[in-house]
Simulated scan of single mutants.
Amino acid sequence: MYVELVDETGKLPAEIMKQTEELLAFAAQKLQLKEATEMAVTFVDNARSHELNLEYRQTDRPTDVISLEYKPDDSEFFFDEEMEVPEELLAEMDPFIGELFISIDKAAEQAADYGHSIEREYGWLAVHGFLHINGYDHYTPEEEAEMFGLQEEILTAYGLTR
């Protein structure tokens, strides 16, 4: 999997960028995503997170991670309007699955609040957002159990334990 990483803050350690790339590739293997899959991760500060949260979620505060799932739109391609295009074909033609915005300020706050390493917090946020853009959610107790169970399984297998 290809992950485009951007640090808008200029403050993120190179080790966290490397960890994020490796962890998301590991998670992609766990979900058996195609090798050609692509996504983007942008590290932002709380001010930018607040702007994005307001724009995309109509929530007037900063947040730790924003996940924007990308769904291919067949109108971009040259298909006959009457033709039904299988979603698998669209995914092959456009392997971009989405993007994450991770607040470095929130990551630092939460690592301190939860008493674990900053590496663990960045890993948690990256995998959490990654699972969201791959269709997982936590609106019901069943969804939460599935998503958080898989999230912990990925983090533990990668070596980011509490």
Rank of each mutant, 00 (worst) to 15 (best):
A40R: 12
G135D: 03
E143S: 07
Y70H: 13
E99K: 14
L150G: 04
F101C: 01
D105C: 00
E8F: 09
P86K: 04
E69D: 01
Y158I: 01
S75G: 03
T63G: 08
I154F: 11
E84N: 06
I133M: 15
E69Q: 11
H116A: 05
D60T: 03
L100G: 07
G115N: 03
F78R: 08
F78Y: 09
T140W: 12
T156C: 07
L150W: 03
F26V: 05
V6Q: 11
Q29N: 14
T20W: 07
R48S: 02
F148W: 08
L90W: 00
I104Q: 11
E99T: 10
E82D: 14
A25S: 13
L131F: 00
I66F: 07
E152K: 14
F130T: 04
V65I: 13
E55V: 08
T140G: 15
H50L: 06
E143Y: 00
Q110H: 06
D94F: 05
D7V: 06
V65S: 10
G129V: 11
M17R: 15
H132W: 02
I118V: 15
K30V: 06
I97G: 03
F130E: 07
A14D: 15
R120W: 15
D105T: 01
F43Y: 15
A40W: 02
T37L: 07
L155W: 03
K18M: 05
G10H: 03
V44N: 00
V65G: 12
Q19K: 14
E119K: 10
E143P: 02
Y158W: 07
A111D: 09
A25I: 12
A108I: 13
D74K: 15
T140P: 14
N134D: 02
E51M: 12
F78Q: 09
I66Y: 05
K71G: 06
D74I: 11
T63E: 07
M83G: 00
L90I: 05
T9P: 01
F43K: 11
Q32M: 10
E153A: 10
M39G: 12
T9D: 03
M17V: 14
M83I: 12
D113Y: 08
L90C: 04
E15K: 15
T161P: 01
K18V: 07
V44W: 00
L68I: 14
D137F: 14
I16K: 15
E143H: 07
P95G: 12
R57D: 09
R57I: 06
A107E: 08
E99I: 04
L24Y: 09
I102E: 08
F78N: 10
E144P: 07
G135S: 02
E99F: 05
R57E: 13
L100S: 11
Y158D: 01
V41Y: 14
G10F: 02
